[in-house]
Amino acid sequence: MSLKKIGERTFKLNNPPSILGNYSIVGPKEGDGPLKDYFDEILEDDLWGEESFEKAETKIQEQTIRAAIENANLSLSDIDLLLSGDLLNQIVASGYSARGLSIPFIGLYGACSTMTESLAVGAMFIDGGFGDKIVCATSSHFSSAERQFRFPLEYASQRKFSAQWTVTGSGATILSAAGEGPFITYVTPGKIVDPGIKDASNMGAAMAPAAIDTLISHFKDTGFEPSDYDLIITGDLGIIGKSIVMDMMKEEGYDLEGIFTDCGAEIFDPYKQDTHAGGSGCGCSAVVFNGYILKEMKKGRFKRVLLAATGALHSPLITQQGESIPSISHAVTIDINRI
């Protein structure tokens, strides 16, 4: 019998973990965007002294995790578990950054939904009493993602208007069984939803229905109304995906006007920064959550936030075989109060 499941698929955490520390590192382009004042560290060079973009991403993730642990006034030996993932094949940025940290590590793959996937799993881990201190982290890098999923950087091509710009950055959150909050109170894991989009430069549209599915289930299971939240924010749907969610949620009877936005729509200025439909990548929701959202929560502007990171679980290989893009969205409630 499930003690913590409410409704169809939401978990209510009876011992909600507290967020003890957090950190975000971003690349130069993100550090030039509208949220630049919220990031803890802005890199001047996205290679950060490394010889490849994969190694640079690994370094960014490892340093973010170290800094988040420091931010929580803890040391590596206090950490019971590291939950992290990224976009690279075999999640190498996470595996290699965990190599440098030498703490128990469980790798996750949720594509760009990894931030909330790790927060969800980490929060349940603590609520279940398996550990005290957990690091949840993820990263992405524009240049390592481009070469894996798209074209070489110097190739003279034009990006579609629906294309998004992978965020260079990493965010890490420290969850603890004890603390002053903010707390993770509810977890709604996603289901795979596939609306049949086959164009990998139209990710926002591919992922929007997964976000809508999770949001609706979350509201039904918890009994919350959108107005119970100060902010409802999806991961990396971008400007097009955000507009799809707004319209389709309205059709379903949920008016999100004024309380809903998307990390990918916020992180860049599409006109000044030429990012077309907005930001994407695991790092997108990670840095917006650990930078902007948590800092605004500490200031008291947001009291209860629903973060629903979104991931497209395809690979270039299988889309070339004609498959469409299956997507997922995991939602977590972050609350100033323990409830």
Partner: peptide, 20 residues
């Protein structure tokens, strides 16, 4: 949501994307 038709959805999405 439950009766999301892929064809209708793709048409709806097309309208959201700025024209080249």
């Amino acid at each position: 949501m439950d009766n999301l038709n892929n064809k209708d959805y793709q048409k709806f999405v097309e309208e959201k994307i700025p024209k080249p």
